[in-house]
Design a protein around this nucleic acid. Structure first.
Lengths: 150, 150
DNA sequence: CTAGTTGCAAATGCTTTGCACAGGA
DNA sequence: TCCTGTGCAAAGCATTTGCAACTAG
């Protein structure tokens, strides 16, 4: 995908987001826009500190880490981002752009690989049903050693 | 299972544990014994603070929370306990008594249900292989609303 | 004997909160 | 305007670490 497409896509994404929170009668801000931009253009999963640094340095926006944490909680509440705790200190965050996916993490270099598996999705539905649960969501993390680290 | 059986089982478990760390040329302690006892006899998944309280109050053993954290890390390293982060603050810990299992959590009452699913286990092996990962472990948490809370 | 363990308290690191001010609807 | 969001600094919490005393092997 070219940089131009990427930018166009982000503009569309941002427009949808603004409409969405407008419908919810919530308030937006410059800072929130740029946090989304950071998450959109960064392939890695970012934590709060990394987002703060990126918005400050790359986009030259004045922002405090408290604002980032508040915005991330806001985004998670309205379900446009997902947080991921891989157990190495700070939580990482990612946009909910595509369908649900899970994560595989290299315990050596901490690389994160996303995967989507229909069997897992189906199993989750079945297991919830078997236990009388009303399914909401699931997270699955597979730990291993990636090809390069072996 | 009766209380007597339970006690016998724990005695056997503890004896095996002592032999295990003796083989590894590691050192045991009274405190570690009682942390294992707390985990063994408590059905709930306990966090560090709860373990400390139980050892202190129920078994009248002098223990500090730092020791509990250090012991838990020790146990996790030699693979006799597993930690579980359900995202509500402190990590919870459980003994590795039976085979691997995953968790389903009620987002309303925070009840934890354990389940074991062969399809999930198989999928995990297959996904790791597909991505060239050397499989080590996985965690899966299904979130939903339990029968009573619906 | 001595390396690893303990309790305590202080330190750390991530996240949240109080407050006065600024800015979006 | 009004209400909510913001940056800053301080507070909060779970977890870790330094240290001197202790203890299992």
């Amino acid at each position: 995908m070219s940089a131009v497409d990427n930018k166009m896509d982000f503009d569309r994404f941002l427009k949808n987001f603004k409409k969405h929170i407008s419908n919810l009668k919530l308030k937006n801000s410059l800072q929130k826009d740029y946090i989304l931009k950071a998450l959109y253009f960064e392939d890695e999963h970012l934590n709060a500190e990394e987002i703060t640094a990126k918005v400050k340095n790359d986009y030259n926006i004045d922002i405090g880490i408290a604002t980032v944490y508040r915005a991330l909680k806001f985004f998670e509440d309205i379900n446009i981002i997902t947080s991921l705790d891989i157990g190495d200190g700070a939580k990482k965050y990612e946009l909910n752009l595509s369908t649900h996916h899970d994560h595989m993490i290299c315990t050596n270099c901490h690389k994160i690989i996303e995967f989507n598996d229909d069997f897992i999705e189906d199993s989750q539905v079945r297991i919830a049903k078997e236990n009388g649960f009303l399914l909401k969501d699931h997270t699955m993390i597979i730990y291993g050693i990636c090809e390069e680290c072996q």
